[in-house]
Amino acid sequence: MVKGIILAFLAFAVFAWGDAVVKAIGHDLDPFEVTFFGYLIPLLLSPAFMKPGDRLTDLVRWRSPWLMALRVFFISITTPLSVMAFTSLPFAEAFALLFLMPSLVTVLSIFVLKETVRWRRGLAVCAAFIGVLIIVRPGFREILPGHVIAIAAALCSAGGVIMGRMIGTTEKRYTLIGSVFLGTAVIAGILMIPGFTWPAPPQWGLLLAFAATAFVAQALFVIATTYAPADRLGAAQYSQILWALLIGALFFDEWPDTVALAGIVIVVAAGLFIFAREQTLKKAPEAPSPAASPQERTAVGQNSF
């Protein structure tokens, strides 16, 4: 269990540094182009996640085609939206808005999965939205397109989680991981055409670094799940906000003010409470629906969520 937790923290640290690379390059290249090259190499390397008996055709051979299609679509759209958010907002602020995802999953589960959400989780969801209002402060400062985009990314990521829960354990691990790499590369490849520009040599270096972090982080998380259940490792993703604060301050000279920092703490605390509450409910006799992997950006997890 301890090895799994350590590897999960390491995986999400790599994800955070990958997002920092995205922020560094995103101002110069089309976000869809960044996403395409960032996921093309992981797609080519995705056979590393195959188990004995898996085939390359499993990428598109889905046992739940409609649910898988929606899941791939939601997660594939999440990444370019996240790229846009990271390039237009302070690093930690973008992360905090993306961490609205667990609260949105809770809300969607009421309408889509017909789950009963008790008052504790309901209060946590309300707190998360209050935290977002504190961060954005509508009426007190300008609401930027990046704020809307980050929330849209969180909503798409939440949609991917809901689809994952509906799919359950019917799909192979390679199918879940590789299909997201494939779907993201295809969708981003099409959408990048109007704004495509050939990357300069330094940009190629950053694109390769982004692709490397996407693959390495996913691989670390997969290895972590061999030591501990994936749903027990979800809390590790919240360590990304600490990396975001550190990276934003050291490399982008971004220092959130006291009000924004308070909002970030509220959003993260609410997400952690929702995660802990769901773990408690899973241990109850009426243990509910199957859970998808917590990292739904590629692991199909946002981040690029």
Rank of each mutant, 00 (worst) to 15 (best):
L10C: 13
F305L: 14
F99V: 07
E142S: 10
I274M: 13
F252R: 04
A284K: 12
P31V: 02
G53A: 05
T78P: 02
T226C: 04
R277Q: 14
D19R: 00
T170D: 15
G178C: 03
G195A: 14
V21Y: 13
V60W: 15
I241V: 13
W243H: 11
T106G: 07
G178M: 02
S46G: 00
G26I: 00
F111K: 09
H147S: 00
F273C: 10
H147Y: 03
M192K: 06
V186T: 06
K3V: 13
G205L: 08
W255R: 15
P201N: 07
P288C: 09
G164M: 11
A154E: 10
L250K: 10
Y39A: 01
D257F: 05
G263A: 04
G18S: 06
R232E: 07
I193L: 11
F305I: 11
D19S: 04
F221L: 05
V83M: 02
K172E: 14
V14R: 02
K51D: 11
A20C: 07
L113R: 14
G122T: 04
F181H: 07
A13D: 10
A128E: 06
P199A: 11
T57P: 01
P199D: 03
F196T: 04
L44S: 00
S179K: 08
N303P: 05
S103L: 08
L123F: 14
W62V: 02
P145T: 02
V60G: 08
F275M: 12
M192S: 03
F12R: 06
Q237L: 10
S304K: 10
T106S: 14
T175C: 12
T78A: 11
K172Y: 12
V268W: 08
F99G: 06
T170F: 11
G53Y: 05
P138A: 14
A94L: 01
G183F: 04
L7Q: 08
D28F: 09
G131W: 10
F32E: 03
F73L: 15
T116W: 15
T78M: 05
S179E: 05
G248A: 08
S239N: 09
R71P: 01
L261W: 04
A11W: 06
F181N: 04
